[in-house]
C-alpha cells in the first residue's frame, strides 16, 4: 500500500511544469524515505533529479518500495483536472500494481474526484552521481537567473559562466554581436531570497547550452532562490529547493573544446 497526501496539491503542477521540456516519461521511486525521480533527457545531455521527502507530506505511507513508471504527459492531463487549492492524494494498491490513483479533494470536502492512471513498464537507467565538493556555489534569486538565461538566449545558443569572488558573469555571442551580464555578490540584503551569495574555492569558467538552462528555469515557481554548483569540466548542478520537502535538481553536461 502506498498513499501520499499533499495539502498543497498545486506543487505537483509546478513539478510537472518543471520537467515537461526534458522528459516525457519517468519512474517515480517510492520508499519510506519519500518519492524520488531521476531521469535523463533523450539526448543524455541533462538529468532531472527530484526528491520529495516523506516528512514533507501531510500523510505518507509506503509499506514496501515501489517503482511507478509514469507517462508524464498523461499525468499532466490528470493533474490539470485538480484545482490549485485541492488536496491531492496519490495512491497505489499492491493488489492493482499496474495503476496509480490520484484523488483531488476541494478544501471544503464538497467535491472529491479520483482518476486512475495506467502505469508503464520503463527501462530506467540510474546514474551514480557522486557527492562532490564544488569549486563554486552561487545562490541567487530564481527569477533573476531565469531573466539572465532568457536574455542570453537572445544573443547566442550557449552561455559562458565565469565565476570569481567578485561576482558571476554570463557571456554569450552570436551573429548579432555579444552580451555580458555581471552580477555582483550582495553587500547586504534585507530579504534572504533576494541575495546573491558566492561560495568559492577557485574561480571557474564553463560553457553551457542555453536551450537546457531555459528548460530548467521552468522550475522558477518552486523556489525563490536557485543555486548553481560548478567545478572545472564537470556537469553544472542547478538546484531549486522545495520548501520543507526536498529539491528539484538539474545536471547539465558542459560544452567542451574538442
Amino acid at each position: 500500500m502506498f498513499e501520499a497526501r499533499l495539502v498543497q496539491g498545486s506543487l505537483l503542477k509546478k513539478i510537472l511544469e518543471a520537467t515537461k521540456d526534458l522528459l516525457t516519461e519517468a519512474t517515480f521511486d517510492c520508499s519510506s524515505t519519500g518519492m524520488s525521480l531521476q531521469a535523463m533527457d533523450s539526448s543524455h545531455v541533462s538529468l532531472v533529479s527530484l526528491m520529495l521527502r516523506s516528512d514533507g507530506f501531510d500523510a505518507y505511507r509506503c509499506d514496501r518500495n515501489l517503482s511507478m513508471g509514469i507517462n508524464l504527459t498523461s499525468m499532466t492531463k490528470i493533474i490539470k483536472c485538480s484545482s490549485n487549492d485541492d488536496v491531492v492524494t496519490i495512491k497505489a494498491d499492491d493488489n492493482n500494481p499496474d495503476t496509480v490513483t490520484f484523488m483531488f479533494e476541494s478544501p471544503n470536502q464538497e467535491k472529491v474526484s479520483d482518476f486512475e492512471m495506467k502505469l508503464m513498464d520503463l527501462d530506467t537507467e540510474h546514474l551514480g552521481i557522486p557527492e562532490t565538493d564544488y569549486s563554486v556555489v552561487v545562490k541567487m534569486p530564481a527569477q533573476e537567473f531565469q531573466r539572465v538565461c532568457r536574455d542570453m538566449s537572445q544573443i547566442g545558443e550557449s552561455v559562458t559562466i565565469c565565476c570569481t569572488k567578485d561576482g558571476i558573469r554570463f557571456s554569450a555571442s552570436g551573429d548579432l554581436g555579444t552580451g555580458n551580464i555581471k552580477i555582483a555578490q550582495s553587500a547586504n540584503v534585507d530579504k534572504e531570497e533576494e541575495a546573491v551569495v558566492i561560495e568559492m574555492q577557485e574561480a571557474v569558467t564553463l560553457t553551457f547550452a542555453l536551450r537546457y538552462l531555459n528548460f530548467f528555469t521552468r522550475a522558477t515557481s518552486l523556489s525563490g532562490q536557485v543555486s548553481l554548483s560548478m567545478s572545472p569540466e564537470v556537469p553544472l548542478v542547478v538546484e531549486y529547493k522545495i520548501a520543507d520537502m526536498g529539491y528539484m535538481r538539474y545536471y547539465l553536461a558542459p560544452k567542451i573544446e574538442d
Binding site: 543524455h44 541533462s46 546514474l127 550557449s158 553536461a253 558542459p254 560544452k255
Partner: peptide, 14 residues
C-alpha cells in the same frame, strides 16, 4: 567551437 558533452561521460551508468 566547443562541442556538447554527454552526462554519461561523467557519471557511472547503471
Amino acid at each position: 567551437k566547443a562541442g556538447q558533452s554527454k552526462l554519461t561521460a561523467f557519471f557511472a551508468g547503471p
